[in-house]
Amino acid sequence: MARDKAPLLIVDQLTMRFGGLCAVDALDFTARGGEITALIGPNGAGKTTLFNCVTGFYRSCAGRIALARPDPDSPGAFRADWREELEELTRSTRRSARLEGGEIFLLERMADFEIVKRAGVARTFQNIRLFRGMTVLENLIVAQHNRLIGPALDLAGRLGFGAYRARERAAIETARFWLDRVGLIDRADEAAGALPYGAQRRLEIARAMATAPTLLCLDEPAAGLNPRESHELTALLLSLRDDHDVSILIIEHDMSVVMAISDHVVVLDHGVKIADGTARDIRQDEAVIKAYLGVADEADIAAMGA
């Protein structure tokens, strides 16, 4: 396993409380560029809360969420270790800093739409959130809103004239590319809400990809899929990582999917990280087995052994 890849997402001491409930408690972990990082854990472990903090849906109570975005044109130029620059950025009041070959961001200082627009984080939801009344194609074009509207002073473009036409063609091209990738090209003009469940899941991933993200956050993408569909999903995710230069953070309960695709697994339980390592390490980790099977105390284990 290549562990020398540059860190992409660094979560430091992240805490999120809802009243008396501590959903995420001083969580630390790092996701690396070009890898698929899986977040697993029992229900209520704080996985979705973490996603919500990363994507700006929630404002975290404490801690730091840092993300690096290498420039797409020169992916090799970005440095592997940006911790020093990150410390400097944290001390300042700025939200982002330019480095050679890329940019680093402090996500907890940014508004939700900026996290997508500038830092390149896209996500999907456990309960699918498509624009049901819009067509499949329109769903993907909304995702390219920022590229479509162009520069702030392009008033003609805002009204749909001039350079807007060229940008619109490019957006439709991108949309068709992703629809083709997820096998929905024939249904481009149907209402998104009318698609069958599995197709809606794929459309959500295609829509997230249309924002041209650096980090793709998937919340239980295999939930409710049949074995053939979840096999196709696995192939799609691996190809996103290998062919499209996207790093993936995935929450998933289907262990066959997790084991097949993850480069790195982080296990949460009650808002605390209980294990962190490769898929193989995790499978043998005692704390993980205990959290999943709910074995209560030593006496029980001894009894089982006797």
Partner: peptide, 12 residues
């Protein structure tokens, strides 16, 4: 249709 989702796709 879904303001928060639109925000997550980069719409201000």
């Amino acid at each position: 249709q879904d303001g928060r989702m639109a925000a997550l796709l980069g719409v201000d």
